[in-house]
Amino acid sequence: MPIIEVENLVKKFGSFVANDNLTFSVEAGEIYGFLGANGAGKTTAMKILCGLSSPTSGKVMVAGYDVAKQSEMVKQRIGYMSQRFSLFEDLSVWENFQFFGGIYGLSKAKIKERTSELLGRLGLESEKNQILGSLPLGWKQKLAFSVSIIHQPSIVFLDEPTGGVDPITRRQFWEIIYETASQGITVFVTTHYMDEAEYCQRVSIMADGRIVALDTPANLKAKYNAANIEEVFLKIARN
């Protein structure tokens, strides 16, 4: 069953068409890679999917809600992790979880339960009272991801979650993504690392406001006669 359904989405800013008739769907529990060159319209589309901006026309359903009419319901059902680090550096790990859990209206008991569950999975229980700013970047990035799913959303949007992260942590991060998806949370992710596109079940590639390719990595490579997704991306972007 699709958890995201986009039909003929158009978003215009004045005469500029940022999203030009997008149609695609994402299945529940899927890891979906959302690729495209800078300025292709990815951020615009992501903002609409998250209920932060409304479409000029077209229909966008996320987690069963219409983003144009029920954006507040959408926001409760999704998690979001921005490319720039978004936790509070001067609060402790635990205080960050408490704060964001509170924003999503979780009870104190629930916050406690989810925090120990998520920290346990990262093996960071003993860092619970550390001030976030004192931790290595790789840990912070994993914590930001955990915070984004503290309210057990149906979908989590990850906007370049591994940018600038060291190569070992970058790979650990993808293992956490796999684990999360296997628990039924849909993962919608953007990245500039083309090797990471191979870890997605399906990827779409945007150019000039349109989705020009959408398939499994294996099918895209076959279709574009390419050794890897980077080659697919270059062939598309240079046309």
Binding site: A37, N38, Q83, E160, H192, A237, R238
Partner: peptide, 10 residues
């Protein structure tokens, strides 16, 4: 090249 897409990086 941080935050720059694969084509612009090349």
């Amino acid at each position: 090249t941080t935050g720059v897409d694969a084509v612009s990086r090349i």
